[in-house]
């Protein structure tokens, strides 16, 4: 059989578009991700969603649905703006955590590892994976981890670079506001910089030198996740924010003086 250009062109079109039509009809043709991770094929966890199949395009909402992890835990672990918990895509982490020191990266692999540890699912570590300190704190609090696992987690914990506090979209405005105040007078700088506001987190209190034990004395309870806003904590516990703020501010002022 002898083929000419026209024949070959027709055959190419038939093969390509025929193949696409055929697989579309059978439902196999997918150009986008279904956002449902593959499941373990065998073993104790057969049938459960496999964190290793989490893709960069998955949102925290997708992951929360597939793995039954509270959105709040996911969002807080990676320092995401609460308003974006549902729509935040894993791949966005890499650019957000870009200023980590060389060789350290927080990205989709970190989310996979976090989910595996959180749910106690098997996970094959093929590369060095780092987790934000907040994620490690949440795992310590909520996952069933051995002492050895906790120790190894502490080794891979990375703190959020200062500039990356902007993960919370409300923070840039606060920082900008503080910067404006900082440039006005030195005296004013010290008072306004360490002033508790609605969005001040427990981590900030710790950063200002307040001891965890002192905070817990005021709360009369264990300190929650450090990334939690004091105002949110007050709302959750049914405590009046203004009263709590006043007590905490006294602690801050004591440290300053």
């Amino acid at each position: 059989m002898n083929l000419r250009s026209t024949h070959l062109a027709i055959i190419i079109f038939v093969f390509i578009f025929g193949g696409i039509a055929l697989t579309s009809a059978t439902g196999y043709w997918q150009t986008t991700n279904t956002k449902i991770p593959a499941t373990y094929k065998d073993g104790e966890f057969a049938g459960q969603a496999d964190p290793a199949d989490i893709r960069g395009s998955y949102t925290f909402g997708d992951i929360s649905n597939s793995f039954d992890i509270p959105l709040e835990d996911l969002g807080q672990a990676f320092g995401v703006d609460p308003e974006r918990y549902v729509t935040f895509q894993c791949k966005e982490l890499e650019s957000i955590y870009a200023s980590l020191e060389e060789g350290k990266e927080v990205g989709t692999a970190s989310v996979r590892y976090f989910v595996a540890l959180y749910k106690g699912l098997p996970f094959n570590l093929t590369e060095s994976i780092y987790l934000p300190e907040l994620a490690v704190d949440i795992l310590k609090e909520k996952a069933s981890l051995s002492e050895a696992e906790i120790l190894s987690l502490e080794e891979i914990a990375v703190s959020l670079p200062a500039s990356d506090n902007s993960l919370d979209s409300s923070l840039p405005e606060q920082l900008e506001h503080e910067n404006v105040e900082n440039t006005s007078t030195d005296t004013h700088e010290t008072t306004s910089a360490n002033t508790i506001k609605g969005i001040t987190t427990f981590q900030e209190l710790l950063n200002w030198g307040v001891l965890k034990e002192d905070i817990e004395k005021i709360l009369n309870d264990k300190m929650p996740n450090p990334q939690k806003n004091i105002k949110d904590y007050a709302a959750e516990k049914g405590i009046e924010f203004s009263g709590l703020k006043e007590s905490m501010q006294e602690l801050v002022d004591t440290v300053k003086s």
Binding site: L3, L8, I11, I12, F15, I16, G19, I20, T23, Y28, W29, Q30, T31, T32, N33, A38, K41, D50, A52, D53, R55, G56, T108
Partner: peptide, 27 residues
């Protein structure tokens, strides 16, 4: 090995790979 694709790859890549192989066997 595990029945899934590497990152960013979907079923469509697999379908096109098979089509390309069939075309290559012939032409």
């Amino acid at each position: 090995a595990v029945g899934t694709f590497v990152q960013k790859i979907h079923e469509s890549s697999f379908v096109l790979m098979v089509i390309a192989f069939l075309l290559a066997i012939l032409f």
